[in-house]
């Protein structure tokens, strides 16, 4: 059973997640004509910038976030931006798209100048997220849990962040029982993806370095 507070929390987070998406004019560019490697680099950089802006707009709506210390807010966003980006991309790539669009997007990433050794784990992650068949509420809550990770570098008031995260964890756990009654391990599987995300994020700096060199 959900408490009234939990119902309200879920509604606010899901609405904000649904509302704050990458603008269509940015995503449309990805499907346009062929680009050179340099143009691909610029385009994917523009996408990344847009993703961060969307992430911040979404995060502002998480109840309690704006009451945290301002520098802690920055530290949380800085520490989670890459992971949130991977999550959002996974969900975007797993959506049903018109025929041919997935291929165009994948080709663009393969031709972006990023080394194949980094692309493979990224697509493996996207696939493993797709296999979970998360509902929108679960996607929104999982992203929120990623953002509210208390042990990010430079976070001062970790207990305050932990309190906010625990509320969302409890809500997600209940959601999993409700939506996946046949899979008692579903909640644990979702949390397992967060560990995978951390590993991906860890290699992100290396990936960027190899990208620049190429």
């Amino acid at each position: 059973e959900f408490t009234t507070e939990q119902q309200a929390l879920m509604r606010v987070i899901t609405d904000a997640y649904n509302k704050h998406q990458i603008p269509q004019d940015v995503t449309k560019k990805l499907l346009q004509d062929q680009y050179s490697t340099e143009e691909n680099f610029l385009l994917l950089t523009e996408m990344a910038t847009s993703q961060v802006q969307v992430l911040v707009e979404f995060t502002k709506n998480i109840p309690g976030f704006l009451s945290l210390d301002r520098e802690d807010q920055i530290a949380l966003l800085k520490g989670s931006a890459v992971e949130a980006m991977f999550l959002r991309s996974a969900q975007a790539l797993n959506k049903k798209m018109p025929i041919g669009h997935t291929e165009v997007l994948e080709e663009r990433i393969h031709k972006s100048g990023i080394s194949e050794e980094f692309i493979k784990p990224m697509f493996n992650f996207y696939k493993s997220i797709g296999e979970l068949h998360m509902v929108l509420e679960e996607q929104a809550l999982l992203t929120t849990i990623t953002i509210l990770t208390p042990d990010r570098p430079y976070v001062k008031d970790q207990p305050a962040v932990e309190r906010l995260q625990e509320n969302v964890l409890d809500l997600l756990r209940k959601m999993c029982v409700l939506h996946h009654p046949q899979e008692p391990q579903y909640f644990a599987r979702l949390l397992g993806r967060l560990t995978e995300l951390r590993t991906l994020s860890h290699y992100h700096a290396e990936m960027l370095a190899s990208w620049k060199v190429n």
């Binding site: 910038t49 961060v52 911040v56 502002k60 704006l66 920055i74 931006a81 620049k212």
Partner: peptide
């Protein structure tokens, strides 16, 4: 945001926008 500085700039700017509102 190809480096951490760029990333922090974008975050700060997006957060401050909220303050001005």
């Amino acid at each position: 945001p190809a480096n951490n500085l760029g990333l922090e700039d974008i975050i700060r700017k997006a957060l401050m926008g909220n303050l001005e509102e």
